[in-house]
Design a binder for these strands. Structure first.
Lengths: 135, 135
DNA sequence: CTGTATCCGGAGCGATACTG
DNA sequence: CAGTATCGCTCCGGATACAG
C-alpha cells in the first residue's frame, strides 16, 4: 500500500528518543497540544491580533488561560508580543517565523479533524451501540 | 511571502466553527492531543503491537492511562483491537485506515517538534535570561 | 485595555492492589 | 498477559476581584 510506505518514511525520520520520558519536546507538546494551545496558534494565522480579539475569537476561553497560554508560546518563541505605549495600552500578538511553520502543521491537523468528524462520530455510535447500550 | 500564502490556503479550508465552544472535534482533539494520545497513535505506525509492547515502548505511561487512552482511540475507530483466544490471552492493537491517515498528521507534528527543539530551547533561554533572572 | 492574584471545584494521572 | 478498581494527589481551568 502506497500510503503505508509514505508515512513510514515520515516516521522513520523521528529521532529514537521521541518516546522517552525525558524527551525535551514533551513540555512543549504538552502546551501546544494542551486544551487551548493549538487554537491560539491557529487563530493567529490570518494575521496579528489583540488580546481582546483573541478572547472573543476563541470561544469559551477565560482571560486567565488565554494570558497563561500566550505567555508560554511567547516564551517558546512561537509568538511575538508587541506593546504599543499608548493609553490605554494596546498589545498585539503575531506569529514568528517559527510559529508560522508550526501553524502549518497544526492547521493540517485541525483540517483533518474537521474533514473526518463524520467518520469519527459514526465510529463512536457503532462502538456504543455494539457493546453497552445500558451505559 | 510564499509561506504565508501557502498556509493561509490551508487555514481557509477550516470550517468557520473550528473555534466554537461546541465544536464536535473538541472532545476528540482533547483525547488525541492529550498527554498520551499522539504517542500511542505514533507508536502503532510501524505496525501492530501488543499491550505490553506499548507499555514498554511509551516510556513513563501507566497501565491505567494506556488502557484508558486505548479504549478511547478504539472507540473513535482509529485503532483496532484484536483478541487472540489463547491462554494467556494476547491482544493486538493496530491502526485502522482512519487511524493511519491521522498518524500521518501526528507524525508530521512530532517531526516538527523534533526538528525545532534547538530553536525552541534557545527561545526559552533567551526569554528567561532577558526578564527575570531571579526566577 | 491588558493583564495579575486568589480561591476553589473537578479532571487527569500515577501507584497499588486485585481479577480473568 | 491484559486489563479493572480504588485511593490520593496534583494541576488545570473557571469565576471573581484587583492592578497598571
Amino acid at each position: 500500500m502506497a500510503v503505508s510506505e509514505q508515512f513510514k518514511d515520515v516516521f522513520a525520520q523521528l529521532p529514537a528518543g521521541s518516546f522517552d520520558k525525558d524527551c525535551p519536546t514533551r513540555p512543549v507538546m504538552a502546551q501546544v497540544t494542551g486544551r487551548w494551545g493549538a487554537l491560539i496558534i491557529a487563530a493567529l494565522v490570518p494575521g496579528p491580533m489583540r488580546f481582546s480579539g483573541l478572547h472573543q475569537h476563541i470561544d469559551g476561553i477565560s482571560q486567565k488561560m488565554l494570558s497563561q497560554y500566550l505567555k508560554s508560546v511567547v516564551r517558546y518563541g512561537l509568538v511575538e508580543r508587541l506593546v504599543e505605549p499608548t493609553v490605554p495600552p494596546q498589545v498585539t500578538y503575531s506569529l514568528t517565523p517559527l510559529g508560522q511553520s508550526l501553524a502549518q502543521q497544526l492547521c493540517a491537523l485541525l483540517s483533518w479533524f474537521s474533514a473526518n468528524t463524520p467518520a469519527l462520530e459514526a465510529a463512536q455510535q457503532r462502538y456504543d451501540a455494539a457493546d453497552s447500550p445500558a451505559r
